[in-house]
Computed example of a mutant assay.
Amino acid sequence: MNQNLIFAFEIILFIVATVLVILGLLQGKKNHNGLGALSGGNQELFASTKERGWTRLFSIITLGLGISLFIIAIIIRILMNTLL
């Protein structure tokens, strides 16, 4: 029973990590100013841009999945220390 619980959390962790990677790949690049700042390009380095639409949704979901990834990993570690 104890190993089944840990295994279930590991499967959930794998699914969350996979979805997190896919969402990360679907997001566009947010910062195009890195090389322009080094080469002296005239780009708006400190421009304030707001995320809108799908970009904002992907960003919020990615943040939530990242936080849940760490929480699930900590839960698995605690279960392994206490149950096994």
Rank of each mutant, 00 (worst) to 15 (best):
I11D: 11
L57H: 06
I72H: 08
F70L: 15
F58S: 02
N4E: 14
A8S: 11
T62M: 05
S68N: 06
L35M: 15
I72K: 02
T18K: 02
I67Q: 04
L57N: 03
N4I: 02
G41Y: 10
N2C: 01
F7Q: 14
M1E: 09
N31C: 02
Q43L: 15
N42R: 12
K29G: 03
G53D: 03
I78N: 04
L5Q: 10
V16Y: 01
F46I: 11
L57F: 09
G34R: 11
N42E: 15
L57R: 05
Q3M: 08
N31P: 01
A47K: 14
L38Y: 13
G40C: 12
N2V: 09
Q27K: 12
Q43R: 00
E10H: 07
G64S: 10
F70A: 03
Q27R: 14
T49Q: 07
I72D: 07
V21A: 03
S48P: 00
M1G: 15
I71R: 00
L25I: 15
F70G: 15
G41L: 13
L20T: 14
T62K: 09
E10S: 14
I11R: 13
L84V: 11
I60Q: 02
E44N: 15
A17E: 05
R77M: 07
L38P: 02
E44Y: 09
T55R: 07
T18C: 10
N42V: 13
L63C: 00
A73T: 10
Q27N: 04
R52D: 06
I67E: 06
G41C: 09
L79F: 09
T82L: 07
L23K: 04
F70C: 08
I78T: 05
F46H: 12
G28A: 08
S59W: 01
L38W: 10
L65A: 06
N81T: 04
V19H: 06
S48T: 11
G34E: 10
V21S: 00
G66E: 04
A47V: 10
L69A: 08
I76T: 05
L83F: 08
V19R: 05
T55A: 04
F70S: 12
S68V: 12
T62P: 05
W54C: 04
L25N: 11
F7Y: 12
N2S: 15
I15V: 15
A17L: 11
M80I: 05
I6K: 06
G34T: 14
I74Q: 04
E10G: 06
F58P: 01
L13I: 01
R56V: 05
M80T: 14
L13T: 08
F14P: 02
F14S: 13
I78E: 03
V19C: 07
S59G: 08
T62Q: 07
G34I: 15
I15N: 07
V21R: 02
E44M: 09
A47D: 12
V16E: 05
L26I: 14
I71S: 10
M1K: 04
N2D: 12
L25E: 07
I15Q: 01
L83Q: 03
L20S: 13
L20Y: 09
M1T: 06
L5C: 02
G41F: 13
V16S: 08
A8E: 11
T55D: 00
I6P: 07
